[in-house]
Simulated scan of single mutants.
Amino acid sequence: MSSKMRALVFGLSLAVVSAAVLPGIAAAQNRDRDREQSEDSAEDRAKKDEEWGQKDLRLAKRRADGPCPFVKVLYDAARYQDFEGGKEASAEAKWTGQINGVASDCAYKGGEPIEIEMIVGFSLGKGPKAGADSNTYRYWVAVTDRDETVLAKEYFDLPVNFNGKSSVDVATRIENIVIPRAAASIAGDNFEVLIGFDVTPQMVEFNRQGKRFRFAKVKAQ
């Protein structure tokens, strides 16, 4: 399955975007800071290092004048699980998903806007109650400032064809994330870029409890 290319530009004035764009994100960020990915097995970590350590990011060839924004997956929205009738059982599974990791880089100079690009890795599953061989997953990318105020948010659709398999891995490139700055003195570490699935309240609670449900991974061609 080929990688998808995405583009995202955050307007000319981030300060005017409503804080209601992403309700509850500040609380979720606080939980994230206290909960690292210690749940990942050694095998998961090794796979992540191998998968993201060798990706070619265009911005890696351009030097930034300062630190890059912190880019991470929001824990509460890192996994997606859709069960028939809300029953958490393998026989009732429809669609599952997990964001495995993110590789990112940035570039900026003087008072120019910060430009970010990233590659996001997904593991996606099809359960016995799926009823189809393809599904469109929805995820979002959001920018916050150091005070955890949401500055901008954009949704993306990720169409996936399983081709008869129960699971696939997909890597998606997102380019042209542009963060304007009020002054050259505002460095990249004043911002965070967050990624997550578009999840229901039930899925959020599932994730907060540290539950995991995914099918055996089959590498997409």
Score class of each variant (00 low, 15 high):
residue 34 D to S: 06
residue 73 V to W: 01
residue 161 N to Y: 12
residue 15 A to F: 12
residue 187 A to R: 09
residue 73 V to M: 03
residue 128 P to H: 12
residue 173 R to M: 10
residue 174 I to K: 10
residue 212 R to E: 05
residue 51 E to Q: 07
residue 105 D to K: 09
residue 58 R to P: 05
residue 63 R to Q: 13
residue 132 A to F: 00
residue 22 L to A: 03
residue 189 D to P: 13
residue 179 I to P: 14
residue 35 R to E: 08
residue 94 K to P: 03
residue 180 P to S: 06
residue 30 N to K: 15
residue 65 D to W: 04
residue 5 M to T: 14
residue 197 F to M: 04
residue 196 G to N: 01
residue 160 V to T: 03
residue 16 V to E: 08
residue 78 A to M: 15
residue 172 T to E: 05
residue 57 L to E: 01
residue 130 A to T: 00
residue 74 L to P: 01
residue 15 A to I: 10
residue 86 G to D: 10
residue 49 D to K: 15
residue 122 F to M: 05
residue 151 L to A: 08
residue 71 V to G: 02
residue 189 D to V: 06
residue 178 V to T: 15
residue 65 D to K: 04
residue 104 S to W: 09
residue 191 F to E: 00
residue 137 Y to H: 10
residue 64 A to L: 00
residue 82 D to M: 05
residue 189 D to G: 05
residue 164 G to D: 06
residue 139 Y to R: 01
residue 96 T to D: 05
residue 111 G to C: 07
residue 88 E to Y: 05
residue 15 A to W: 04
residue 124 L to G: 08
residue 188 G to S: 11
residue 152 A to M: 08
residue 207 N to D: 01
residue 43 E to H: 07
residue 104 S to Y: 06
residue 93 A to T: 12
residue 55 K to W: 01
residue 212 R to A: 09
residue 195 I to E: 04
residue 9 V to Y: 10
residue 4 K to V: 02
residue 123 S to V: 11
residue 128 P to K: 14
residue 201 P to F: 06
